[in-house]
Design a protein around this nucleic acid. Structure first.
Lengths: 103, 103
DNA sequence: GAAATAGTTCGATACTATCGAACTATTGAA
DNA sequence: TTCAATAGTTCGATAGTATCGAACTATTTC
């Protein structure tokens, strides 16, 4: 695994985060992470989408600071950066996930 | 003024709205509308930005259903579609505006 | 009518997204 | 310890989107 750019908490930017969430695939990934906690790339979006495209989407989420990656063997476990997001933008993630999944 | 596409309340899509807000210029426009109520194109973003670019940004906000345009003479007054947004995505706009303007 | 004003549309260039193919890295077995 | 399988990234080509100046449209005012 290469050096992955990961913005510090204090340099999280709201437009970048909203942009990252403003795509159907990425928003679905985020809502799944919100309910499931941690997912590998392969099952983060288990639909017919090429893995190169999925990798691209996860990179955008990472670089925006929405998700964190933990490598374990050959699996890359993705999870939401809940604490950092909550600290910088209180209530944002919860509100978006709430309205994204109307139940 | 031509026919302007304007999505109905029920067809507002969350990814499209987040995408529209996921740009620094457009997010600034929205926070200004949130505090000032209604603004014309020209003063929605009173910085050095070409008016063709500004027009493009406002179109994206309109087509995502974030703002509404009212023509009065040769001025186009833009305002947030607060009620529609609140009905479809409760708390979303307020939360985003709150965290966008940290005060 | 002509000039001024508010904003849109057009067209060219630059940037970003998608997806198959090739690549890297780790695991597990022969 | 080499080989195959697996998980994901990177590359490269094509398609789509953004930016901004220039031209255009519509409305007001003189």
């Amino acid at each position: 695994m290469k050096i992955i750019y990961r913005p510090e908490r204090d340099s999280l930017e709201l437009p970048g985060i909203l942009y990252a969430l403003g795509d159907p695939v990425r928003l679905t990934i985020v809502t799944r992470l919100a309910s499931k906690g941690e997912l590998t790339c392969g099952i983060a979006y288990p639909d017919l989408i090429p893995k190169s495209t999925l990798s691209h989407h996860l990179k955008i989420l990472r670089e925006a600071g929405v998700i964190h990656v933990r490598q374990q063997g050959r699996e890359y476990h993705n999870s939401l950066r809940r604490d950092d997001l909550e600290a910088r933008f209180p209530g944002l993630l919860r509100t978006i996930v709430d309205v994204a999944v109307p139940r």
